[in-house]
Amino acid sequence: MTSTIRCRPEAVPRRSLGVRVRRVKGDFLIGVEDKALLLSGPAQLIYSSLDGARTVSEVSQLIAEEYGVGEEEALGDVREFLDDLAGRGLVEWVVRLPNPTSAP
């Protein structure tokens, strides 16, 4: 898969506003405009974990634990999947502002 977007492990993804989500026989059917995507298994877990608080690394740890795969493999798969979703407009990235520090 070729993608111009590449998420970092510390990036924080969230589901894009305006995306319709329906549960169909236990799976998620997500869509924007006239396009839809059916998510099941790991894809469904990844998408449901995108709460705007968890990092890509934290989501990949959930996948590694749930499916018994190595963390590096899970991280690669999660990053690739999120790149695809972001390219489709289904995921966006949370911009975290730096925490203000106290004056010395």
Rank of each mutant, 00 (worst) to 15 (best):
P42C: 04
V56N: 00
E65N: 08
L45R: 12
G52N: 06
V32A: 10
S16V: 04
L97M: 12
E66K: 14
E33W: 10
E65V: 09
I30V: 14
A74I: 00
A43R: 03
R8H: 12
R14V: 09
S49R: 06
S16N: 09
V78K: 00
E66M: 03
L29E: 14
R6H: 12
L39A: 02
N99Y: 10
V94Q: 11
V32E: 06
P13L: 04
Q61D: 09
L17K: 15
R23A: 12
A36P: 05
R15T: 11
M1G: 15
A64T: 01
F28Y: 14
G31P: 03
T4H: 08
V21M: 14
I5G: 03
P42E: 05
A74V: 04
Q44N: 07
D83V: 00
M1H: 09
S49E: 03
I46P: 01
W93H: 05
E72G: 05
A36T: 14
D27H: 12
A103E: 15
I5K: 04
L90T: 05
L85N: 02
G68L: 06
V69S: 10
L29P: 08
G41H: 11
V59D: 01
D51M: 01
S60A: 15
W93Q: 12
L39F: 04
W93R: 11
R20G: 11
V78S: 03
Q44P: 00
S40M: 04
E73F: 10
E65S: 09
R22Y: 04
V21Q: 12
V24S: 07
E92K: 07
V59Y: 03
S3A: 09
Q44T: 02
E33M: 10
A11Y: 08
T101M: 14
P98S: 13
T2R: 06
E92H: 08
D77S: 14
R15D: 01
R79K: 14
P13N: 02
L17I: 12
R20T: 13
G31V: 00
L17G: 14
Q44M: 15
E10D: 15
N99I: 09
T101L: 14
V56R: 00
F28E: 07
L37E: 08
P100M: 08
L38V: 14
S49T: 06
A53K: 13
V95M: 02
S57D: 10
L82E: 02
L82W: 02
E33K: 15
V91Q: 00
D27L: 09
G31Q: 06
L90I: 06
P9F: 07
R79G: 13
V32S: 11
V95L: 10
R96S: 10
V95K: 08
S48F: 01
E33C: 06
P104N: 10
I46A: 04
T2W: 05
V94W: 02
L82K: 00
A43L: 01
D51H: 07
I5D: 04
R8E: 13
S49L: 05
T4F: 06
K35W: 09
